[in-house]
């Protein structure tokens, strides 16, 4: 963490407040409701590939820590909404993941461009796969 020498102390600065507000605005979710029960993480099918658990990502967002933008987790998220149906406080965690993805993508940065696909892959994949992939990974 970049916020303090020992890491045990954390001061909520204006830039943290701004980051948190942006996440809330884009996701439309009240992330303060999260009490870190972990139900979302236990229902998520892809935690094995992630660096941060979904509930940890929410914690980063609550603290307004912009480092979460560098996490692999929002890109591993497949928007399956298992977390949404499980959250006891009614938070749609998938919306928060999308907010973080958008904050990265809107800096003129595509996560995955179609240039990286081979002609064989383009011949094999149904349109629905490529369309939805590009929706989530490009701006």
């Amino acid at each position: 963490m970049s916020t303090g020498a020992s890491g045990l102390y954390f001061t909520f600065k204006p830039e943290n407040a701004a980051f948190k507000a942006k996440v809330e605005e884009l996701s439309g979710e009240n992330i303060d409701l999260c009490f870190q029960c972990g139900a979302c993480s236990s229902s998520c099918p892809l935690t094995g590939e992630m660096d941060l658990l979904p509930s940890t990502v929410i914690r980063y967002a609550q603290l307004g820590l912009a480092e979460v933008l560098e996490s692999k987790t929002p890109w591993i998220c497949i928007t399956c909404f298992n977390c949404e149906i499980r959250c006891p406080r009614g938070i749609d965690i998938a919306n928060v993941m999308e907010a973080i993805r958008e904050m990265v993508l809107r800096t003129k940065y595509d996560k995955f461009t179609l240039d990286e696909l081979t002609p064989e892959e383009l011949r094999e994949l149904p349109q629905i796969a490529i369309i939805s992939n590009q929706r989530k990974l490009t701006a």
Binding site: I78, F112, L117
Partner: peptide, 19 residues
Amino acid sequence: AKCCGAYHAVHMKEVAADL
């Protein structure tokens, strides 16, 4: 009702295959 891997089939084939 568990996810099949959806659009990860494009760029993360093994992940989708695993699911």
